[in-house]
Design a binder for these strands. Structure first.
Lengths: 346, 346
DNA sequence: CTGAAAGCGCTTACAG
DNA sequence: CTGAAAGCGCTTACAG
């Protein structure tokens, strides 16, 4: 019933050695004879002793904890992707014997919120942190990096002279967009629109840039009326298409969505207008969201492996914390077209 | 570029007071004159000082961190419900200024895994923990409670003489099952089957018990051939119905599924056999999963508010940690029928 | 190979 | 109202 209050002195006493030796055993020092070692381990085992983490950290060891910061004003909780991200980080950190402290940032512009995030680093609760969903070059993250904390940022630009404590990871959005446009062009589309993502995010920018480049390379014109704003959320796709269908008489035959959520929203709006996908308008997404395959119609999209990305990010971040891989600065993962049923030949 | 290394001595020196006073200011002691307080706060603010968390904990303060333990052998990552649970806990802990250390337990029977979980408590990384997905009376959790740690367990029986450091939360599964059966009976069904959940879990047991009681109260017979095993996962629903449709010539007109995932699997199997829901067989689920509304057909189910449950669990757990609500032992939430299109009148 | 001792950065009785 | 000092439970040079 009583909480264990045994400490290293007690273990030392019971094993007939000094606390120094107990510590050496726990930390696997090589200069402890097997016999002493076994004797101590036996006592540790018997009394269910685990060293107090705070004392260890205070004495100079790492917290063996990383922070996972999810920036999303919306409904993080209902997004199946978010879940995969969280679980990927936790599981891969766990393999390296690290813990994950997850924090949700609803408003990255609120100074009180920023203060809380900074506090977690300054309090030394974590050895480093991963940020997901941040604006490109988000100032408070730049500051943390500047202050020397080990930080990994997903979907972020690498500066010209990157600090050794910064890691950045991205998908090859340019390639993805080129594949999307090439596929549509191959199906005979030339009237292609786009619903953009959040342009404060690097991926929002690179996807749109990729789209424009791809259109040019396919010899196609970008019609400004078919370039629509969005923010990576379902609703923005819905709203964009609502507006388009409400105003424009000239419609595109295909639309590239900044991600699958946006594509879902777009399709919903199209259906509400009594039109069909892909019969009236073809839609291609980006991400290959867990629901895309089961969507009606099954969504043609650009597949991206978030789980692999977060695994690598987590691994490299921890290696950086432990001063191993000093050279890794950037992680880039490819993406590839998955053909389903939301685009048709015309 | 350099990591902040300022500490309370430094702040004390800069403010012209002692470390004791700095500590008193930080901890909001009442016996510090406003003037001194302001002077110290100014320096703290200026130098961006945050007390080292490990030192605070070692000196006797709480870690202000709770553990969230998710037990799931399967694909935690693809379950949208899990995400909501994690986010609910994190956000409500955050309101109370607590952090959440999330841990995934793939195999609650593996001694090494159990050791890791126990370690987190013994290391004093957390002040308490919440377990989700555990078997009823899972021994290692019982042990932690026995050892005096503050623990909340979702979907768990309350023992006869509950310890003050235990909280348990459940949905009123009995009521839910009665509503489900009553609804089906009202639609004219008398041939009602059930796909059970994991019978090691309390909810697996209570749902089945509720089902049997409800059938009796409606004057209906439980046909043992229509009582199928499951484990709360989609696949088990699929397998159960595959077997049923493969073997039995006499079929039920309606099936109650232990949860919505099981219902999805059941419907998938029914469709594969060329039958229709609800035309050939009616299906009712349990949970009101985020996808149930969008399912084809939209799933009739028993709605349950996981987010509210986890919010209350988190709040009470932290209050227990802080020795406030000493009386709360059990949280029970009601559930209610949501009629959609997966059940028909016969 | 091993112990005594200093030190990590706090908090909190204690004394004044 | 405030400071000096002890103590939290570890780790790690240092000396032997």
């Amino acid at each position: 019933m009583k909480k264990s209050e045994i400490n290293s002195s007690e273990i030392a006493r019971l094993a007939g050695v000094s606390r120094s030796t107990v510590s050496r055993v726990i930390n696997n020092y090589s200069n402890v004879p097997a016999e002493t070692r076994d004797k101590v381990l036996k006592v540790i085992e018997k009394y269910n002793y685990f060293p107090n983490a705070s004392a260890q950290v205070l004495a100079g060891k790492r917290a063996r904890t990383i922070g996972l910061f999810l920036i999303d004003q919306g409904n993080v909780s209902s997004d199946i992707l978010t879940n995969m991200l969280i679980v990927s980080v936790i599981e891969h950190a766990s393999v390296l014997d690290y813990y994950v402290l997850t924090h949700i940032i609803r408003n990255a512009k609120d100074t009180e919120v920023i203060r809380n995030v900074r506090e977690i680093f300054y309090q030394r609760r974590i050895d480093g942190g991963i940020f997901i969903g941040a604006a490109n070059r988000e100032p408070f993250i730049e500051q943390l990096i500047d202050e020397g904390f080990v930080v990994g940022v997903v979907d972020q630009e690498l500066p010209d002279h990157p600090e050794p404590n910064r890691i950045v990871s991205n998908f090859n959005n340019d390639s993805g967009m080129k594949q999307a446009v090439a596929y549509l062009a191959g199906l005979g589309h030339s009237r292609i629109g786009v619903v953009n993502g959040d342009m404060n995010r690097l991926s929002g920018q690179t996807k749109y840039e990729g789209f424009k480049t791809a259109m040019r390379m396919c010899g196609l014109q970008v019609n400004p009326k078919w370039v629509m704003d969005g923010d990576f959320h379902e609703t923005s796709g819905y709203n964009a298409i609502q507006t388009l269908l409400g105003i424009e008489s000239e419609l595109p035959t295909a639309i590239v969505a900044a991600n699958d959520s946006v594509a879902f929203g777009a399709i919903r709006a199209i259906k509400e207008h009594g039109l069909l996908v892909p019969d009236d308008i073809s839609i291609i997404g980006f991400d290959d969201h867990a629901l895309s395959e089961k969507h009606h119609p099954p969504l043609t999209t650009i597949r991206v492996d978030f789980s692999a990305m977060l695994k690598r990010m987590t691994t490299y971040l921890i290696e950086k914390i432990e001063q191993k891989t000093l050279t890794v600065k950037e992680i880039t993962l490819d993406c590839s077209l998955v053909v389903r049923e939301s685009c048709r030949r015309i």
